[in-house]
Design a protein around this nucleic acid. Structure first.
Lengths: 239, 239
DNA sequence: ACCTGAACACCGTTCAAGT
DNA sequence: ACCTGAACACCGTTCAAGT
């Protein structure tokens, strides 16, 4: 609501890559992905496009940098808490990303496209490392590290992105519950022959808590880890 | 290589929504996401922009339609095979999506953005239904259908998207193995203190088969399903 | 070294006009 | 009903020129 920088204000700080990235994040947060343009950026920073291009190669690099900055901040806040168990630590990492994507919905699309742009640059190792450390701490055999960390990463980013969509108002005056209710209703109107599963699931969807559901997915994956550890020997007479 | 339609050719078929979507998919396949423009489309269809807008609301709707068409085709090809076990059927669905995204790399980004656009329209129920039917067939309790199907969906789409990135040549004359090798090398140059896990994983990454690794992730998730059947009641004496 | 701002090529979309 | 194509507003990017 409170305008931070107005066009008439004189720029006090010198232009820098950091300030440009900061302004880019603000624009993305307030105006969405379409809101980040070089015109809006020049106005906010009280400068010309040429000045921005001196600090940043192009728009793609700026988007990558904005994404990386937000993800880095989200992952940096977690080690402050108590170490607890690896499970708790993993949940903390996951919820950190969950909240970051919830606060910055453009992150979801951006992470997906960044995976395909600077293929495995900066942000991917960052996320993989945070998740992977807990995977290692959980005692997963090294041979499975990549698979487990990858499954967790894709689920976390995908589910968090979906949640962020649900959280945003779609149309004026539409809140989260109304939105989920509308989706549920739409699903129940699908063809019973073509969509029996989706219709059945539509009933239980709007009811549950989002974070709880999110963590349930992680718990499910972790259950798979502990269930299959050394499959070769040990006949394990359960049931 | 062989140009299907040249500018001088007279358009024989009448313009239709289907032909426009078809041309859009071809452009996306050959020229990537940036290759789909209304100018390229008008040239290929030998018409003007106004004609396209008569059949399609705007570019977003066209992208949604192209995505939906390709996904529908990918999911339609699987029931032809043998029913086998639900596990095999689920693998078939997953590989169908895997291959579709591999053939049409723009699908990965497009699916991510479509999740946030027409929030849960057309393509999401389609994918969820195909996966969900096998989840149901696997005997998962109904209360968990949503969680399990969601975990599977996000993993499948995320991992397939990542694979598609790896498959495309990045730069001239760079093939898949060279690319993965380069990523592995880049990871091993990361700071040992900040990225121990990622460095450790870099070694095993370029070695494995992609489809095998992809299916290993699904097997991991399925292991979780069968391991945690009914946790609600039962006093859970753990720790 | 850092910034300005006009200019360029290109894009999605509109719309009066045709058939 | 369906199509044409000029026109509009806007975008990312460049670059000669300033300090």
């Amino acid at each position: 609501m409170a305008p931070r920088t107005r066009k008439s204000e004189r720029r006090t700080e010198a232009l820098s890559r950091e300030r440009i990235i900061e302004a880019a994040v603000e624009l993305l947060d307030t105006a969405g992905e379409g809101g980040l343009t070089f015109r809006a950026l020049t106005e906010r920073l009280a400068t010309g496009p040429g000045a921005i291009y001196w600090h940043v190669a192009n728009k793609d690099e700026l988007l990558d940098a904005a994404t990386d900055a937000v993800v880095a901040a989200a992952l940096a806040t977690e080690p402050a808490g108590s170490p607890d168990s690896p499970r708790d630590a993993l949940n903390a990492v996951a919820l950190g990303l969950f909240d970051a994507i919830d606060e910055h919905p453009w992150l979801a699309t951006q992470l997906a496209t960044q995976f395909s742009r600077g293929p495995w640059k900066s942000v991917t190792p960052r996320i993989l490392e945070s998740i992977g450390r807990q995977v290692r701490a959980l005692g997963v055999p090294e041979r499975r590290w990549f698979t487990v960390a990858t499954v967790l990463m894709h689920y976390i980013l995908g589910a968090a992105g979906q949640n962020a969509v649900n959280g945003r108002a779609h149309g004026p005056g539409v809140n989260r519950d109304e939105f989920l209710g509308a989706v549920s209703t739409a699903w129940k109107e699908l063809d019973p022959d073509d969509y029996p599963f989706t219709r059945a699931v539509a009933d239980q969807m709007p009811g549950h808590d989002d974070r709880e559901e999110f963590l349930a997915g992680i718990a499910l994956i972790l259950a798979g880890i502990t269930a299959v550890p050394p499959p070769p020997r040990s006949h394990r007479a359960r049931r």
